[in-house]
């Protein structure tokens, strides 16, 4: 029997292209959750209990199970179709101008507001959690299973989402933050400008046809009427940040771009990748050269292709830079 012969080459090649993950067709979590046993509250075997105390402890354990279940269900929001559970963290947040008690249900269309002393925490259906910081104004726009949507009018929120990508959206006056599986902080100032800081995973910022992809460790500014700027590293030099802001929002043009290219280092390759298509056409070759020096393009990516904004090549290089590839393995 040729049992230990090598896997035929053609078959081996095809096997390598099979996806390592297949999402189930339905959410299995509710059934799994129902089968999970809560922590064992029984006394240690080394302390034998009899009679009254034994039954008292069993009753307490049972009550604990029921209590935990009730707390769990109330916080996770039994009414996720039309509203989400919201809880006071500190101070006196308001729900549609009414002071919020310890907990409540936040319904579609309602505004949640915090003053300088208050904070609130809300369960995003069953897919995540958002903390609303002081001096913030947030509206619940959508609670559909495929579209959990908020509008941050001003202030700051911190989101931690564990859902599949593109189920959680935060609109702001200048762009929409699209969750791609992540944790992030999003702030909006009184003029409607925003700052996104991604701390885990990826977020896309979108405004019309204008998009930016921001991985963990990077920030991105947004401005009304302009949309998202070019993402930059949290460690980027102040001069580089300033040059990018001029390039993105104040018609800094080629002078600003020149400064960006001069200042960008190995930690700024994601910034440069975005500039491959954002730079004016005559300057894209300069961006290509700078990026190529910092991180050589992978096989299959050519200078001509990039200058022609070939999408497949842009994605290939992005993967090489860790923009997409970082997600492919743990």
């Amino acid at each position: 029997m040729n049992d230990d012969t090598e896997l035929p080459e053609k078959l081996a090649l095809q096997l390598r292209h099979l996806p390592s993950a297949i999402p189930p067709e339905r959410d299995l979590w509710p059934e799994i959750r129902d089968r999970l046993e809560v922590p064992d509250l029984r006394p240690s075997r080394s302390v034998p209990l009899r009679g009254f105390w034994r039954y008292s402890l069993l009753a307490a354990a049972a009550a604990g199970v029921v209590g935990l279940s009730l707390v769990w269900r109330s916080f996770r929001g039994s009414d996720t179709a039309t509203g989400w559970a919201v809880a006071v963290v500190s101070g006196s947040p308001q729900l549609d101008r009414q002071r919020l008690a310890d907990q409540g249900t936040w319904r579609r269309g309602q505004w949640l507001e915090t003053d300088s002393d208050s904070r609130a925490r809300l369960a995003v259906g069953t897919i995540g959690e958002v903390n609303l910081e002081p001096n913030s104004r947030l509206r619940l726009l959508g609670t559909a299973a495929q579209d959990h949507r908020l509008r941050l009018e001003r202030g700051t929120l911190r989101a931690f989402i564990w859902a599949p990508p593109r189920l959680f959206f935060v609109e702001t006056p200048s762009a929409t933050a699209v969750d791609l599986g992540c944790a992030y902080t999003l702030s909006v100032d009184d003029a409607g400008g925003g700052t996104l800081h991604v701390t885990s995973g990826y977020v896309a910022l979108e405004s019309g046809a204008r998009r930016a992809l921001i991985p963990a460790g990077l920030l991105c500014l947004t401005r009304p009427g302009k949309g998202p700027g070019t993402p930059f590293s949290q460690d980027a030099a102040p001069e580089l940040r300033a040059a990018l802001e001029r390039f993105d929002f104040t018609a800094g043009g080629e002078v600003a771009l020149e400064a960006v290219l001069r200042l960008a280092g190995s930690g700024d390759v994601v910034t440069l990748w975005h500039l491959l298509t954002r730079a004016p056409a005559p300057r894209r070759a300069d961006v290509f050269e700078r990026l190529a020096r910092l991180h050589a393009p992978p096989a299959g990516v050519t200078r001509e292709g990039i200058l022609a904004a070939d999408r497949a090549m842009l994605k290939l290089w992005a993967a090489e830079l860790g923009l997409f590839g970082a997600l492919s393995e743990e």
Partner: peptide, 21 residues
């Protein structure tokens, strides 16, 4: 100023959820 945007930021990942910690 910005005639073309970056390639569509669609992320193909075997892990739909990234873990914070």
């Amino acid at each position: 100023m910005h005639a073309v945007d970056p390639a569509e930021p669609r992320v193909d990942s075997p892990f739909p959820v990234l873990l914070h910690d």
